[in-house]
Amino acid sequence: MAQITKAGLTFPIMNSGNRHGEVSGEPLPILMRYWRARRNPRDIPALPQTVRRATGLTQQDVAYLAGVSVRWYRQLENGVAADYSADLLDRVATALDLSPAERATLYLRAVGRPPTPYSPLQEDTAECWDQDLLQLFVDNQEPMPSYATDLSWNVVAHNLTLRRWFPWAAHGANLMRWVFLEPEARQHLVNWESDWARPFLGQLRYERAHHPANAALAQLERAILAGSQDARELWHRREVVEHSHGAVRRLRLPYHQGQEVTVRMVTVRPLRTVALCVNLLVECANPGGPSAS
Score class of each variant (00 low, 15 high):
residue 46 A to N: 08
residue 29 P to D: 05
residue 197 A to V: 06
residue 292 A to P: 08
residue 26 E to Y: 05
residue 6 K to W: 15
residue 52 R to H: 11
residue 257 Q to P: 00
residue 61 D to M: 06
residue 42 R to E: 15
residue 20 H to R: 08
residue 237 R to M: 14
residue 149 T to P: 03
residue 210 H to Y: 01
residue 112 G to I: 13
residue 193 E to H: 06
residue 246 G to C: 09
residue 88 L to K: 15
residue 232 R to K: 14
residue 8 G to F: 10
residue 269 R to N: 05
residue 125 T to V: 12
residue 128 C to Q: 12
residue 93 A to C: 09
residue 266 V to F: 00
residue 237 R to V: 04
residue 147 Y to H: 07
residue 103 R to Y: 05
residue 40 N to V: 10
residue 119 S to N: 14
residue 17 G to Q: 04
residue 80 V to E: 06
residue 224 I to D: 02
residue 118 Y to P: 02
residue 142 E to N: 09
residue 244 S to H: 13
residue 172 G to F: 02
residue 291 S to I: 10
residue 9 L to N: 13
residue 133 L to P: 01
residue 280 L to D: 00
residue 212 P to N: 02
residue 72 W to G: 07
residue 155 V to H: 06
residue 138 V to D: 06
residue 79 G to Y: 05
residue 254 P to N: 04
residue 285 A to L: 10
residue 252 R to G: 01
residue 202 G to K: 02
residue 74 R to P: 11
residue 48 P to K: 04
residue 259 Q to A: 15
residue 192 W to G: 03
residue 94 T to M: 01
residue 67 G to A: 04
residue 67 G to W: 06
residue 124 D to E: 15
residue 221 E to F: 03
residue 234 L to Q: 09
residue 91 R to G: 07
residue 127 E to W: 13
residue 216 A to H: 03
residue 160 L to S: 06
residue 263 V to Q: 02
residue 62 V to L: 02
residue 223 A to W: 00
residue 79 G to V: 01
residue 151 L to W: 12
residue 256 H to Y: 12
residue 109 R to V: 06
residue 39 R to V: 14
residue 52 R to D: 12
residue 192 W to H: 01
residue 253 L to H: 04
residue 187 Q to S: 14
residue 203 Q to M: 15
residue 85 S to R: 11
residue 274 V to G: 09
residue 275 A to Y: 01
residue 97 D to P: 02
residue 70 V to M: 14
residue 233 E to M: 06
residue 72 W to T: 07
residue 187 Q to T: 14
residue 172 G to C: 02
residue 229 Q to M: 12
residue 86 A to Q: 03
residue 209 A to W: 00
residue 182 E to H: 08
residue 220 L to W: 01
residue 120 P to V: 13
residue 140 N to H: 13
residue 160 L to R: 12
residue 114 P to Q: 15
residue 87 D to C: 10
residue 217 L to T: 09
residue 120 P to K: 11
residue 293 S to Y: 09
residue 65 L to R: 07
residue 199 P to A: 04
residue 35 W to R: 12
residue 154 N to W: 08
residue 243 H to V: 04
